[in-house]
Amino acid sequence: MRGGALVAPPDRQAGVDFSQILQNILNGLSIGSVYAIFALGYTLVFSILGIINFAHGAVFTLGAYFTYALTGQRFGFNGLLSNTALPVALPFIVAMLGGATLAGLVSVLVERVAFRPLRQRNADRLLSVVSSLGVAVILVNLIQYLVGAESYSYPSNPFGLSKPAINFGSVERPIPVRSIQIVIFAVALVILLLLTLAINRTMLGKALQAVAEDLTTARLLGINTKRLIVLTFFVSGFLAGLAGTLVGASQSITGPYFGITFGLKGLGVIVLGGLGNVSGAVLGGFVIGLAEAFVPPQFVQYKEAVAFAILFLILLIRPQGLLGRTQVQKV
């Protein structure tokens, strides 16, 4: 009998509902980990060049489409590549890494086309920002032109997970979390760990830090800055592509504009964490994810504004971000 459903269970009237809080925390961590991976690439580029790469969201989108193509699935009828598919069909994990690699290469190309010429001319940094916006416009519309505006999905359950969700609560009071989101969370932690190790423990990382500190001095010290910049863009694009694929696996690729929301919210994430600060990007991602998850259900229509309200507040109160140092002079 369902008649009892009309009476609210006692714990819901008691004010504080701990399972609800736990649910919100888990939801926030899972979406926050996507923001974090996304923002890592953003912030890496900022840390060495002092430039926000607006094409990052488009590379994220491309990565998801590359993976789709590499799994050998067919495209729809609305684009130039109407009803075509690659002759190969790679296993999903391989396709994901392949897609991320391709996204990394595109990111290198973006650097070559939109950033390097301007840097060589010693142009105003604002122009680089604008130029990267131009690249974003090209990439997004190229996707639409080639494969149409429809959404695409990977084969169901690409990671071969045994259950669609895991219950962190009890049977009568379930606190379910989708398994794919746990995968994303784990991947985010692994990436953060690897990246922190790479930056702090390797020669390359040290060189990167030197470049981030001061490009010209680093060059004088004999660091091959050009190669380092290319490498940074590759890593940034790789991470974006990986994030795109993961989100695509969790939620399907929702069209060429797929990455735009992440691109815009990502700005909030990196400013919150501190522009150019790698751990800050991760922290910012989780904070914004949690803030969104804790929006009460009756105000859910304002959820989309949370990241932007935070961005605005942080500019007001602490423009250097949570983990940033006070001097941020770059554009």
Partner: peptide, 10 residues
């Protein structure tokens, strides 16, 4: 620097 652009996007 870039902060105005970010604030205006927000």
């Amino acid at each position: 620097g870039i902060y105005l652009a970010l604030a205006t996007i927000a």
